[in-house]
Structure formats: C-alpha cells, structure tokens
Design a protein around this nucleic acid. Structure first.
Length: 305
DNA sequence: ATCTGAATGAGTCGAATGAC
DNA sequence: GTCATTCGACTCATTCAGAT
C-alpha cells in the first residue's frame, strides 16, 4: 500500500474522507463544517485526525484563508472521484426521473444565453420537469469556475472564447451575426451595400462594458473600412430596446432576434465570422445522472431550434 | 437469547487563546 | 474582527462483558 500505511488506513472512515473532501473544496474549516452540517470544532478535530493519518498538515494558514499542501492537492481529484463512485454505488436511484424531481438547478448565462437558449427551452423544461426549479445567474467569468467547483453553479452557457480552464464542454450550436434595425427604418428598406452599411449609426454589445471595437470592426478594418458605433451597451436586451426606439442598427446574434416581429433582419454586406455557443460544467458533475439528463435536455433542444 | 450497565467514540456547545 | 485550534463538560449511540 502506498501513500498511508495500512494501520493508518484502517483508522480512516468514510466520514473522515467526506470531511477531507469538503475541506479541500472550501479551503476553510468553518465553511467545510457548514457544508457537512457539523460544528466547526468537530471538523477541526477531524482535520487533526486526518493530519495525523496522512502525516501531513493538509491545509496551512495562508494570507487569504487556508492553503492546501502539495499532498492535499494530490489527494483532491482521486478523492472526489472515489466519493462520486461510492455515491453512485449506494444511490437507490440509478436513473433520474425529471417528472418527479424537485431539484433546483443553478444556471449561469449571459442575457444572450437567457434569450437564445433558456427562453426557447423553458416551456419544454417545465413540461418534462414540472417540479424542478431553475435559478439563473448572470455570468461573471472571473469567479464562475470556482463556483462550479463548489457546486454553486451547475451549468454555464458560454461562447467558445475565454472559457475558464478545467471545465467539461459540449458544443450547442454555431451562431451567426445578422444586421438588425427597427421596422420602418428610414435608411434601411433592403439589404444595404457595404457603403450604406458603414454610413449607418451602430449600437454594439460589449459585455465587459465600454467597448467600441468588435469583430465587425475588425473585418471592416481588413478591407480598409470603418463603421460608426455611437452606442456601446453591456446587455443584448438593452441593445434591442435601443434599436426599437432609435434609428440605430446593430450586428446581433441571429438566434436573439429570429422571433422578434418588431425588427427587420438582413444578411450583413460583409462576411462576419460567427461564434460557437457551448455548455460547460465541472468534472464533479460529469457522471451525475441528473446532471447528465440536464445536459442532454439542453443539447437536444438547441439542436431542434 | 435477552437484559443491564460500563466503556467508548463521536458529536455538541461555550469559552479561551493565538495568529493574522 | 475573523478564523482556527484546543479544552472541558455534556449528550447520545454503540459495543461488549457479565448476569439472568
């Protein structure tokens, strides 16, 4: 036996391993205790036992909370996999039944993800999982990987770019850009020429805020042209409202506007590369039957629409 | 086989202490 | 002030040996 000696291994029980898993996830004794529904001193005592068994401090006080030792880092992934294996082995249900499940799913999406993925699938979701609940969170790329690791976010809808490392990924669909304006726009009755296109005043969506240069500007620049972006907004829905109430135009993802009868939609006069929309999740959920059902549901629905 | 009581282990709470 | 650690006092469940 490698790692810990047999006599130490015999001192180990499943609860100690669950405590170790919670500690390695939280890096905080108090939060690990909350996660386990135990008192903080109780988890502290268990940590002391684990330190004795592994002959390693496992977690050390650092400048910002407890930091795992190399040994603890080494243990984290195999321990998580072993616990998932055990959970599945002892789980009374090997199948997930959405019709009776009252599970709450935490989904992270941009407002584009809400409109293009969640809204079109919501009715079907309610029909097949009437007791389940969905909590939608606005995507904050900086902390989303950590939240997924902690189990606070189940799935993330995200473009292929800037994906947090270490997450599982499944492509949902390819998205393309279309030119959009309000119906009755005085300067846009048909698909514009390139010159007409660059003469229009544009609104663009900059999720980070304050951006006036996007993929459309990059493609125009390659042909020596420029467009006039006069409004930069952070949310797609605000861009749609701006289009409805002004003579601005916008290059927007096609799925966002395809059901919108108040807008007119044209193929852009210049080829603009689209993007890939994907679903991301943490390794810890990968084999979970309920999670697998959710992923299959969204993937199938996105394929249909 | 069943009951009883002691021993043991694991948990709680409250409090004190020390590090940051 | 926050958080981890440690301690003492206590409860509760389980185990085990001895008595019936």
């Amino acid at each position: 036996m490698t790692g810990i000696a047999m006599n130490n291994f015999r001192r180990m029980d499943l609860n100690l391993l669950l405590t170790l898993d919670a500690l390695l996830t939280e890096h905080n004794v108090t939060r690990a205790a909350q996660r386990l529904n135990l008192s903080q001193p109780s988890v502290s005592v268990q940590l002391a036992k684990l330190r004795d068994i592994f002959n390693d401090p496992l977690l050390l006080p650092g400048p910002r909370g407890m930091l795992p030792t190399a040994k603890a880092d080494e243990l984290r992934q195999p321990l998580r996999e072993a616990i998932e294996l055990l959970e599945r082995a002892v789980s009374p249900d090997s199948e997930f039944n959405p019709a009776i499940s009252s599970k709450t799913w935490n989904v992270s999406a941009s407002d584009y993800g809400e409109s293009a993925i969640l809204l079109p699938t919501l009715s079907a979701f309610r029909a097949v999982a009437p007791h389940a609940r969905l909590a939608i969170f606005e995507t904050q790329p900086a902390g989303v990987a950590k939240k997924m690791e902690q189990g606070d976010i189940d799935v993330l809808f995200h473009t292929g770019d800037g994906v947090p490392a270490g997450l599982r990924r499944r492509k949902l669909f390819d998205e393309s850009y279309v030119l959009v304006s309000r119906k009755g726009h005085p300067r846009l009755a048909k698909r514009p020429t390139l010159a007409e296109f660059t003469a229009l005043e544009h609104v663009m969506v900059s999720p980070e805020g304050g951006g006036f240069y996007g993929i459309t500007d990059k493609m125009l620049e390659e042909t020596g042209l420029k467009r006039k972006v006069v409004l930069s907004v952070q949310h797609f829905l605000f861009a749609l409202s701006a289009l409805a109430s002004t003579d601005l135009v916008a290059m927007l993802p096609a799925r966002l506007v395809k059901e919108n009868s108040t807008l007119q939609i044209f193929e852009p006069p210049i080829e603009i590369p689209g993007f890939e929309m994907a679903m991301l999740w943490h390794e810890r959920c990968h084999r979970d039957v309920a999670h697998r059902w959710l992923r299959d549901f969204f993937a199938a629905r996105c394929l249909e629409s």
